[in-house]
Design a protein around this nucleic acid. Structure first.
Lengths: 347, 347
DNA sequence: TTGGCAATCTGTAACGTTTCAGTATATTGA
DNA sequence: TCAATATACTGAAACGTTACAGATTGCCAA
């Protein structure tokens, strides 16, 4: 128990970042004791604990991430896996902000892991898991049978999906209730006298494609309206494609008098197509669209909108992943966001 | 030189992630040799080098980031520092995608570090530097006298700014030539007979506010048009504010017959305001606007647009930071993006 | 032969953290 | 009184990497 300054340590330069060793030296304790005191371990005396924590706060001690990660494997990183090509008018920033909001006062960092159209969506996830680059993962564009979710479940790495899967496997998710959205939209249009409705669907293959289509179909038969098939486009198509095909559709005799669109970007193109065909919004046809920011009513007042909050989605997803990491049951970390009413323009 | 399996090592379980030790064992070499062979050190025999690299590739060896980071301080992380509240129609995703494009085949990860309106913009930067969380930083919303740039220059941490500063200090940046943009816009409007022009400016305080205002003023006097002051808004204002104040402006006798807008989101509000005042785009007034995605022509065909490519900005910024990290001279890592022509709608 | 010197390769230590297996002291039970 | 036990602390080892300071070998000049 000799308390001479250890010969090799240079506690001289005050500019260096403090480590546990610095704290140990300052408090006269061992490194181990300091480490445990900082994490409120029970076998540390109350006064010692307070003293260590005080000094740590004073000198602005921050654990070295690399040290922790090397020793424990804990990265303190959440990864958001994104497709860099889909989603035109990108809601991406909202999700990111939602996530950062939640992790702001945690030690977590957010890394963005992209993948492109040409890649297998499993690639980035495999990379993250194999290299142990994150404690938790958020993926979007969930599919009914999603290999990524299956993969991560097998490896036991916490994750949350934006959108639900349908594999009989339970995992955290956040989803917008697109079944309800499509239903509400149909009922609204029926209520204002529209009877021949078309749907601009989500990308085929994603889970919420099914939800939307089902909500649409069920509500159609409920209100006794009919569907005008419009399967040639989804919101993943380009502006040009959607516009052209909408114009084609609107030039037919059996054209719809109502359209429901699953995304604001697509709606811009749909409206352009409608007008290309010489028809007028609000008179010849009504359009209900989801949007994630208040742009559509600036675009055309006649549009009917339903708001989807992606910032909230980001927050919920982050909360879910952190919850799972923290040991909560995956099944308890699922949330579904109800759509707003269908909103007409108000001055 | 005994080649018995070292007693404590368990090279048995094939499921573990390979490390240098694994490679050393497999090749029969020392850990040091393997390490150097992998980074093409000159004192390693050519054959040995090839052999090690072959084995490494075969078993999918990936250096442990925490190990490298702990030992060398190199994080292999680039941080993008973002304000979570400004920038309505967010170009954020484009920047992110641009960055990820460039770092895709490097060992770098991208972390997003947010800060909110209530915080000092220096906070996140200070955090990154103090904790050594990134090898390079990208900041946006550059100011003429930017404390963040000054701070990072002092600490010698590589960074790039989206937008220029004006402190007589040299550092990498990427910027859109807003002086040219405003000038082109003025000249275009003058050429189609507009003589009384108003400018929806960038946020006061940011460097490109000055560029834009100067480009506007210089071109005005060049073509002999006059300015209608419109200092009550900038593109950082809310949609509602811009819309209301534009309507007010357009109801005055001395209203402009041309408006130049620095952002697409603001332009939506400007057009709404114009129409609120009962005026018609293309007849009573023309509007030139920057946009970062092809939305404005769907919105109103009469709009005149200039495209700004944020994905490119992201790529350039990433390239700049990586260049600086790689030892290039900061002064050689500056780029300016020329605006496109002013583009009217074409069917 | 011997010394010197390249050319290759190697072990050890260190980065900062947590965990393991203690040690020293005080306190309790009988 | 003595042993058992609880309390409060500690050093050493390990995570995977790189840098440092050697080691070993072969070859050439003297």
């Amino acid at each position: 128990m000799d308390r001479r300054a250890t010969d090799k340590d240079d506690e001289t330069s005050a500019t260096e970042r403090p480590t546990l060793k610095t704290l140990a030296f300052m408090t006269g304790l061992g490194v181990t004791t300091v480490s445990r005191a900082l994490k409120d371990a029970p076998e540390i005396g109350a006064e010692t604990r307070r003293r260590v924590q005080l000094v740590a706060k004073q000198i602005g001690y921050r654990p070295n991430r690399a040290g922790v990660r090397l020793r424990t494997g804990k990265t303190n990183v959440i990864s958001l896996v994104l497709n860099t090509e889909h989603e035109l008018m990108s809601f991406v920033s909202d999700i990111i902000y939602g996530v950062t909001e939640v992790i702001a006062d945690t030690p977590y960092h957010l890394i963005v892991t992209p993948y492109s159209r040409s890649q297998d969506p499993l690639d980035p996830v495999r990379y993250l898991v194999e290299t142990g680059s994150a404690d938790g993962v958020i993926i979007s564009r969930a599919q009914p049978n999603d290999p990524r979710a299956r993969y991560m479940l097998e490896r036991g790495i916490p994750f949350a999906t934006h959108g639900r899967t349908d594999m009989g496997l339970v995992h955290p998710y956040h989803d917008f209730d697109n079944y309800a959205f499509a239903g509400e939209a149909v009922r609204y249009l029926a209520a204002i006298g529209r009877r021949r409705l078309a749907l601009v669907t989500p990308p085929v293959g994603l889970t919420y494609y099914g939800h939307t289509v089902n909500g649409f179909a069920d509500a159609l038969s409920e209100v006794g309206a009919s569907e005008v098939p419009f399967n040639t486009v989804s919101i993943d198509h380009t502006i040009e494609q959607i516009r052209m095909r909408t114009a084609q559709l609107m030039r037919r005799d059996d054209r719809p008098d109502g359209i429901i669109s699953s995304a604001a970007a697509a709606t811009l193109a749909v409206v352009a197509g409608i007008e290309d065909a010489g028809l007028k919004l609000g008179r010849d046809i009504d359009v209900v669209s989801k949007q994630s920011s208040e742009v559509l009513h600036l675009f055309r007042r006649e549009l009917l909108v339903v708001n989807e909050n992606f910032r909230l989605a980001g927050s919920e997803l982050a909360r879910a992943v952190l919850g799972w990491i923290g040991g909560a049951a995956p099944g308890s970390l699922q949330s579904l966001s109800k759509p707003s009413e269908v909103l007409p323009y108000r001055g």
